[in-house]
Design a protein around this nucleic acid. Sequence first.
DNA 1: ATACAGATCGGT
DNA 2: CCGATCTGTATA
Length: 210
Amino acid sequence: MSKPDRTFYKKTSLELAKAILGFYLVHITPHGRMVGKIVETEAYMGIHDKAAHSYNNNRTKRTEVMFGPPGHAYIYLIYGMYHCMNIVAAETDTPQAVLIRALEPVEGMESMAQLRYKKSLHQCSKKEKTGLSNGPGKLCQAMDISRSENGLDLVNSKHMFLLEDDPPDKKDIITSTRINIGYAEEAIHFPYRFYINSSPYVSVKVNTSK
DNA sequence: ATACAGATCGGT
DNA sequence: CCGATCTGTATA
């Protein structure tokens, strides 16, 4: 398995969001090496997307990374207590990003359990195990990702990067609207969320009945 | 200087 | 459904 290079990230956030499904996110920390498979993403399409932090070319200290080159991490604090991790897409001055919404734990689950619940994995209920990383705030807590990693270059960093893997079966990928963007008017309805349907680690699944 | 809302989560 | 909790951002 190999690390994607810079050109891999130089695509629209919509394309990148689909392309990284099934890839691995690796973070090497003092707690050990932790790896999760990316099973859910959302695209934030930049200056015309009312759900995006960079909507209307909103360039501030917080959103600055998105205006830079692709392949860097955009990490912000939400609701005063959780972090969300994004990967910057597209080219410089095109502020698009992909939010990582859920991971399937692959390696370092013992450390993840400690960071999430302050207890060891074998004392976790089944629900707690799937709850390790099935949401954007949860996965940052489990993988020890915070604003100290903001701006980090996933192409060159030895500590945090992606590893590419075979794409999932196309039939297994569901497209839906994004979560918790009720303020975004028409953008509420944009089909910018993607997930691997067979994964039990997806945060919210679409109601397929009815 | 102040006000206010938020790309979430966990418990009722 | 509701509250936690605090920063980033806008407004004045």
